[in-house]
Design a protein around this nucleic acid. Sequence first.
DNA 1: CGGCCATTTGAAGGAAGTCAAGCGTAGTGG
DNA 2: CCACTACGCTTGACTTCCTTCAAATGGCCG
Lengths: 240, 240
Amino acid sequence: MTVSGRPLMLKAIIPAFTRLSRLARLDPVADAALRRALVLTTTVPPRREMVQEGMRPPKPRVVISGWAARVRILGDGRRQFLSFILPGELIGNCRRHHLRAVSTVVALTSLTISDAPPAETFPALAMAYDVSAALEEGYLLAQIVRLGRMTAQERIEDLLLELHDRMAMSGLAQDDGFALPLTQEMLADALGLTPVHINRMVQAMRRDSGFTWKSGHISFENRNLLSRKLGYTAPELGFD
Amino acid sequence: MTVSGRPLMLKAIIPAFTRLSRLARLDPVADAALRRALVLTTTVPPRREMVQEGMRPPKPRVVISGWAARVRILGDGRRQFLSFILPGELIGNCRRHHLRAVSTVVALTSLTISDAPPAETFPALAMAYDVSAALEEGYLLAQIVRLGRMTAQERIEDLLLELHDRMAMSGLAQDDGFALPLTQEMLADALGLTPVHINRMVQAMRRDSGFTWKSGHISFENRNLLSRKLGYTAPELGFD
DNA sequence: CGGCCATTTGAAGGAAGTCAAGCGTAGTGG
DNA sequence: CCACTACGCTTGACTTCCTTCAAATGGCCG
């Protein structure tokens, strides 16, 4: 978007590569080709709107590093995040080509992206893109239940569990935690709450709940216990 | 699911036919074939769960008449509707075949359905199914914004506008209203509120807001005014 | 008529929002 | 090196919106 493509160290693309390769169940040959295809990257500064609702959508991309969000903004300024986009996940991975983007996409952190290798020239990835789209729909459904029927505390816990699973798919999580590069305000925009209330709940949960959040890192004390308490189930992979 | 297929009068399938034919932009020949394909129907009683989350999903269907909803239920009984399924719309229209259904589908009224003519044997419909899936995703996004950032009154108004548009797509709406076969409790489950509060808001809106709801029928006093007030935009058709 | 279900109403309580001010820390520039 | 700034986090007091619980009303159908 701003910076013209430049090659990255192979090591840096590992998260994105890991997720796609797993979803596509790539053989070693395709696997090596994918690594090469992801090396040419672009960087995007935080807060930049990469796609704007109603505009002509750009080509699909893969996030190499950093977080983005799909967002809608109401006339009076109220903001709602529709979903997060994490390393290894796709931007604009629409089955059909829309004439206009259905949501704005904004970089939440400094972001490194790469063009998504087209499925036509990279057939092994068709499955990864399909599964990725199915997962994305699952995240939307989970988001609806969070916003409609969960308390503030449950929303936070449920979202953190989901994000943990998603980070694990690209190898970016530990068993009991992950790096969360969000401000409390961003969490509020995702969970339909105010930053003030997010703060109060996080405070309270530091005491009695099952995780801690310090300097951008989430640690679960007992992940199983927490997910059982919430009835949380991992996003369905959807293989058939 | 209960009753074996039986042919319906041609007239009865018109709503479903109208919507699909429009979305697929059918020529007269395909058009006539579609009518024939939809005539063999099945009926489902209200409250019956036609698809259950986690079970093997059945074949795709078209709703001929009646309303259904996709729903998720939390461990303690809290219910959240993910989306409504209206006449002419599809049940289980997944691009990829999931191993398990990602949500339960329940009949809200007595329901008449028909097998969705497979796109392989009915190529003209592929586009209709694509557009239908894209619209469905748009409804999910709108639902997220409603639940996350709108007040009770706005949620009701916004949903009614959307449902009006959707009913219009199968020719089942008037310019200024449509038949709404929902109870206040169902509305509550869709909007993340309690039935009691839905009731109070509807009361209040009978007085000062832009619509009336009497004996299962919604009438907008000034639809344009209402949609401008909400910043409501019609679901994107997504043609390209 | 009686039973069932949806709607309606009241009173009280709780969850989350609003407004406003005070901290803490990292970055910047004189 | 130290104001000065900017931004995110924290806290308090108060308000609003929505829920909860309970009971009453009304319509519809057997």
